[in-house]
């Protein structure tokens, strides 16, 4: 995949400049579709011939020699997590988004991959979690009742 620094279509393609620093993220869409069933990356900084997480060194000729440092990018399935959801009360990090704190500050790709899947079954999982919590308390209480009623002796304090 290759593109010109300036494609001549500034409304569609950001104009890049030598020595420029940019934020980039990657996505791979299944079946060339544009919406669901895709994988995304967290944002990275891209430096054109300058320090950044991903550095694109300048080269002469038609293609680089592909001996430069390369960067691994982890993609994950993001689920159906919307921007309004992320900025709502349901997201503990909403205040950080408003402050402009980068997502990587609190989240990893592995973490978000799990969150994305859970978000698709949010109501069912929350109900089951609540019932599990109550069942655990009931079991602890049942155990306490059994132990203390079966052995109701008291010798001193």
């Amino acid at each position: 995949m290759r593109r010109r620094l300036d494609t001549g279509n500034p409304l569609d393609d950001k104009i890049l400049r030598d020595q420029g620093a940019y934020h980039v993220a990657f996505s791979v869409h299944r079946d060339a579709q544009q919406e669901r069933w895709h994988y995304v990356s967290l944002p990275f900084t891209l430096g054109l011939n300058r320090p950044a997480e991903i550095v694109a060194p300048k080269f002469a000729g038609d293609a680089p020699d592909w001996k430069q440092e390369w960067t691994e990018v982890t993609l994950f399935y993001p689920g159906q997590v919307s921007w309004p959801h992320l900025n709502s009360k349901r997201h503990a990090g909403a205040e950080y988004i408003k402050k402009g704190v980068p997502v990587r500050y609190r989240h990893s790709e592995a973490q978000l991959a799990h969150y994305g899947v859970e978000a698709e079954f949010a109501d069912a999982i929350r109900r089951q979690w609540l019932l599990t919590m109550l069942a655990g308390v009931l079991l602890i209480a049942g155990f306490g009742v059994a132990v203390n009623l079966l052995r109701s002796r008291r010798q001193g304090v």
Partner: peptide, 16 residues
């Protein structure tokens, strides 16, 4: 879990 908890409570009451 619910059945076990109830059995435990029943066991305690029976023991008492």
């Amino acid at each position: 879990i619910g059945v076990v908890a109830l059995l435990l409570i029943g066991l305690g009451l029976w023991g008492r």
